[in-house]
Design a protein around this nucleic acid. Sequence first.
DNA 1: GGTTTTGGTTATATTTCATAACTAAAACCG
DNA 2: CGGTTTTAGTTATGAAATATAACCAAAACC
Lengths: 154, 154
Amino acid sequence: MSAPEALDAAAGEVRLGMLDGVVGYLLRRAQIAVFEDFGRRFQALDLTPAQFSALVAIQENPGRRQSDIAAALGVQRPNFVALMDGLERRGLAERLRSGADRRANALALTRAGRELLDRALGAQAEQETAIRAALGGEAERRRLVETLARLSRL
Amino acid sequence: MSAPEALDAAAGEVRLGMLDGVVGYLLRRAQIAVFEDFGRRFQALDLTPAQFSALVAIQENPGRRQSDIAAALGVQRPNFVALMDGLERRGLAERLRSGADRRANALALTRAGRELLDRALGAQAEQETAIRAALGGEAERRRLVETLARLSRL
DNA sequence: GGTTTTGGTTATATTTCATAACTAAAACCG
DNA sequence: CGGTTTTAGTTATGAAATATAACCAAAACC
């Protein structure tokens, strides 16, 4: 009788088949690549994507309640606590007392936070430039931005 | 003197500022939305995105070594073990002996695995249809696929 | 035939993300 | 007013994804 479970592997590249036409799969791969690039660019600033987005949101909405910022970024309130702890410990952001509601934290950037964010915005602009180059032009990058915004409302 | 740390929150919506022009941030949000949609569509099939992609890769490359499939999907070999354990326990895929190399597992789908994958491909096609609708047409979806593929080579 | 390398596995640490429960302060309401 | 309910922030905790080191058996090397 033939050995029932023996199979010989094919040679050459593994083909992903229809996966490379699947938006969800490609989104995951693209996000990994872009975040790895982010990691390299922001290494010197010691900022994660989450921290960077928090700094931007706080600067854009000074005095807003912590939970508002967290919700806008799509992060659970309990998880945002540690994020803010880190920013505060490094002196980049602070939790002020809200005048109206003594339970609430009114978030704001410190001077050091604004300065670091300025440098971060520079690094971010460089990433967008790299993306523009990879995609073949600013028109393509803009189209991607628009398309991704639509997708997130799926 | 004025109370130094009191700040009143602005009303209205939190603005994300330049974040909604940042590809990395938008990629993250879009991926979350698409994966949540995936979760709803594949709930009945009880398949995660990782499991789905593994089934596709195995069917596309029957007999290939486990580590080749894992590498092609970008998943670490140790982490692929548990994924395969799950598929095998459910009778969807199997680890056959490689004829050439007795260390290697030659992966293959079972009949049940092929049947489930058939249904999964249907659900997947429906997701692409929904995406096409959200983006305004197949041309837009195609462009997105092409753009994401470029991004993952950043 | 002994050494080195490789495929799969185990164990483990880290990170991310979600949920329940607690406190203090506010809002509500008869 | 005073009691109940809701809300902001926090703590504790768990689940899931991801990465690393170490091991065994089989192969490749020389």
